[in-house]
Design a protein around this nucleic acid. Structure first.
Lengths: 195, 195
DNA sequence: CCTACCGATCGGTAGG
DNA sequence: CCTACCGATCGGTAGG
């Protein structure tokens, strides 16, 4: 039914908001049902279990990320220009998060990194896809001479993710408004475009 | 009573282990009581509320961090040598965490960064103390000519915490054994001691 | 999608 | 520190 799909989309949308603030565990069927004016079993019927709901929420967060970050950099040429555009969109996404609790990925990764199961596996797989995308443009940039020939792509990715994680932490824990500019400066230095 | 203090210490010790894996919310009075062979009210009596227990656990995690990181760098001279020693101990602490779930601070900060209340306040205050300590040695290093005179101490701290957060993420989510060396390399480059 | 319900567990309290 | 208990809420199921 189209109606069922619509209801499912509404559940996911609300789940993204709740989970971004309270975490994927803090997201409860009861709270979700109350917010949506549904019964608990009505909510659960769309997913089967809380764990399946959590996986669906993580996948929806990935779709959101794809729209907000790669989606906004798609116009830039492959290689360094695309890498720079991706990083700019990535910082913007943290500076102006589409969800009230900020990047659901960053929070969920920290929440599930010590557990086993499908939620953790989904998070790790999606992070892998994103890093592979970035790595490709790092390699193209090196090949084009836009990054030093002796650059280590994985070292660049390591430091890049660090700058983003520092941004997330400085914004949310320290509420430091200078963090986005610090992240942009760090990234510019890393990618050699600070000249 | 000395016995009461001893019991409290045992509760905290067990709490550190449980919370490092399950988070400060995943830490429950019932599980704690069962593990310790106590009643729930016996556990709760030492703290008054779960929130007070969470604050006590965060403070105990700070004591642990102090022993493991600043405590091991205390022999190095103030300024760049101390800064380098602090960073080396910081990476070691993540590579060989004293708790099974890794740095409880990093996990708890992410868990509580969107909430209000004493747990969040305690976490933010302790992070502030640690950054102030680091900042002092960055400044001394600049004053001594061991870091460029035009260095921005807070930018260095931002990038430093990023490298550590990237280390935490790479170790725990990606289970990447090369992460500690990547963190050391990134830090060496940041502090100019990679020559 | 609903009502009605399950056993388990939550944080916390009363009273000793 | 205990027993005994509270109301609330958890994820989930039966049956429609």
């Amino acid at each position: 039914m189209a109606q069922a799909r619509q209801t499912r989309a509404e559940i996911i949308e609300r789940s993204l908001v709740l989970a971004s603030v309270a975490g994927l565990d803090g997201l409860t069927i009861g709270r979700l049902a109350a917010d949506l004016g549904m019964s608990k079993s009505g909510v659960l019927g769309h997913f089967g279990s809380k764990e399946a709901l959590q996986v669906a929420v993580v996948e929806a967060a990935a779709d959101l990320f794809d729209r907000e970050v790669p989606g906004r950099a798609r116009g830039a040429d492959p290689g360094l220009p695309r890498l720079v555009a991706l990083c700019a969109a990535w910082v913007d996404y943290h500076e102006h998060p589409p969800l009230p609790g900020g990047c659901l990925f960053t929070a969920a990764a920290s929440e599930f990194d010590d557990r086993e199961g499908p939620v953790r596996d989904t998070l790790a797989a999606l992070a892998g896809v994103w890093l592979r995308d970035l790595r490709q443009h790092v390699r193209l940039a090196i090949g084009a001479g836009d990054l030093p020939a002796n650059s280590d792509p994985d070292q660049i990715l390591f430091e890049l993710t660090g700058h983003i994680l520092a941004l997330h932490s400085a914004l949310r824990l320290n509420r430091d408004p200078t963090a986005p500019d610090r992240a942009r400066r760090a990234i510019a230095r890393l990618l050699g475009s600070d000249t």
